[in-house]
Design a binder for these strands. Structure first.
Lengths: 343, 343
DNA sequence: GTGAAAGCGCTAACAC
DNA sequence: GTGTTAGCGCTTTCAC
């Protein structure tokens, strides 16, 4: 059912039809009613592609996304969807494994589909700055959900660095002086900021860091298939063998922390009495872990709302703009795994 | 950069340009090289919307999806994406809360964007049959990832009913005779098939079912906000109070089972010695639960591959077709929570 | 081998 | 108030 056919059946012109469709007041009431009732009957829906081609707007925000929607991203993605929807926008998923080539291909595809703007979901790839830059130069609004040093772009993000510092300080308040951190193998800012926050916390507490307590997963190749749970399990086994060993472990993510909890049990290390464990994310399962996890809650709803609001502002009022950076703080959720509360 | 502009700069016609773009052999080598090199330089990407408008094909599979991408769906979604991508198709997410109205709106939107076919992701809503039927009648290929009684459509699905039966039989082999099942509050086939499989298992084992051991979550309204973890926790508290109580609990999902494990610990019920718990899904965290979960593994990769293959066949060879139904078996993964293996 | 022209379904500017 | 028309960027006949 096209407008062409519609006007034939209705005996009105395309202009009038269009006016009815757009609720224009410049149409006689009788005509409008006739057209509307016929439209309902025929169940007409305008072709969004043709419309977009003409108007140069798709009401769509492209997501420069992960190759896999992982647990860590899914909540953000959902919140973005909800926030966008509420403003009459839809989202379109692009997929990329994060390599510059994949990102470039992903960007090309999103632009070929004429998205109105692009949000980069949870990536911290310094290597991809040229790709991000090219989006901005082409005039397409771009927002990163993670700060990338050297990239002058709008950014809305949860302050991971500060969050990890807060975790460390929380542990020190509870008497810990020898803390370790378990990191994944990526080279993203995502990982780096966790380490930086950890170091900052140690420093602020006036402690000296034992470098060997920074435990990194090995080469990406072999870890590609591993889940965060599995990774945590393996990293913990390394950490438990240390002598002396840390009295507290800060984990890259909640899933990783849960893997650590399992390794702890199997090695006869009791949590939190012998070792404290804290995670990051506050995903749904954190509360139900073997030992309920102390972790940092990410206000993803706020993040998404801010990002979408900013994006729509960028899309709809194209003027001179100076990049903004909106940091959103995570908040600590104290449960049992840090040993700070007695059951 | 449009073809119009391109031909101006290159001094060739649109026809020739198009032939180069589509690797047609009917173009002189010299011309081709000149055009290609210029294309690279200008970083030209054809407008996908305009192309789709003309060719009537978007190389896109629409997903009649959930309003939220939940853990249970995410893995399927990823696998569909990968399988589709490998065949040169992309996916486009529609969102619906599952109500007939939302589904209808979602379908309209997908069709307005001219998706080549629609896959319904993990829903079992009998109420929405008219909506699904309308897709089929309009000639758009449609595949459901869950069987819906009364709907004559292509279907590729994991056989949940058989899976739950298998769980029950596994438990009976281990001596259980009084089993219960914990169900969510939805009225979908999704939930119903679990119950049916459970009942079938009891019957096949020659046992009599205690109806009160079928524990259903209460009204959807108040449960909307609850995670499966939380739901499991609450349902377990009800189950533990029964007297006599079941010696084994079959859970709607792994997440729900993990909630049950927590409730068990808090109520001093030891798993598996005092009560056996089994889940369904084999999600990443199942192995790392408080007590590693015995569960059914869903071969989502196979499911996605079959669904995408079938979909592309339907899209590309439009002929007379008779609906097929492909059932894929889940397989049991025995861990500690059922008590069948000694640590 | 190459070019010209028609049209996918829609919107918007302009005429009546 | 209503109708007409020229494109959006692309593909695809059909001539040459």
């Amino acid at each position: 059912m096209t407008q062409h056919e519609l006007v034939r059946r209705l005996g009105v012109s395309r202009g009038t039809l269009h006016r009815v469709l757009t609720d224009s007041p410049l149409v006689k009431e009788a005509t409008r009613e006739k057209v509307l009732s016929e439209l309902k009957k025929l169940n007409y829906t305008p072709n969004a592609l043709a419309r977009a081609l003409k108007t140069r707007k798709t009401q769509t925000i492209g997501i420069l996304g992960p190759s896999e929607i992982k647990a860590a991203n899914i909540n953000k993605l959902n919140e973005i969807y909800v926030a966008a929807r509420a403003k009459g926008y839809r989202i379109e998923l692009g997929y990329s494994d994060g390599s510059p080539e994949a990102d470039e291909a992903c960007i090309r595809e999103l632009k070929a589909r004429m998205v109105d703007g692009i949000i980069a979901l949870g990536r911290g790839m310094v290597d991809n700055i040229p790709q991000y830059q090219s989006i901005i130069e082409s005039g397409t609004p771009f927002i990163s959900l993670y700060p990338i040093p050297g990239l002058n772009a709008d950014c809305v993000y949860v302050d991971t660095q500060k969050a990890f510092m807060e975790l460390v300080l929380h542990l020190t308040h509870n008497g810990h002086r020898e803390m370790g951190i378990l990191l994944d193998s990526s080279v993203s800012q995502y990982t780096k900021n966790r380490e930086l926050g950890f170091r900052a916390g140690i420093e602020q507490a006036g402690l000296t860091l034992c470098e060997s307590f920074i435990v990194r997963a090995r080469s990406t190749e072999e870890n590609a298939e591993r889940s965060d749970y599995q990774l945590g399990y393996e990293l913990a086994e390394r950490a438990f063998k240390m002598n002396p060993r840390p009295t507290a472990l800060v984990c890259f993510s909640d899933e990783l922390a849960i893997g650590v909890l399992r390794a702890a049990e199997q090695n006869g290390v009791s949590v939190p009495s012998q070792i404290a464990i804290v995670g990051y994310d506050d995903f749904e399962g954190a509360k139900f872990a073997r030992v309920p996890l102390t972790t940092m809650h990410q206000p993803n709803e706020v993040l998404a709302q801010e990002a979408v609001d900013l994006m729509i502002r960028r899309i709809e009022q194209s003027g001179p703009k100076t990049s903004v950076s909106i940091a959103i703080p995570a908040s600590i959720v104290v449960r049992e795994s840090c040993g700070c509360i007695t059951k």
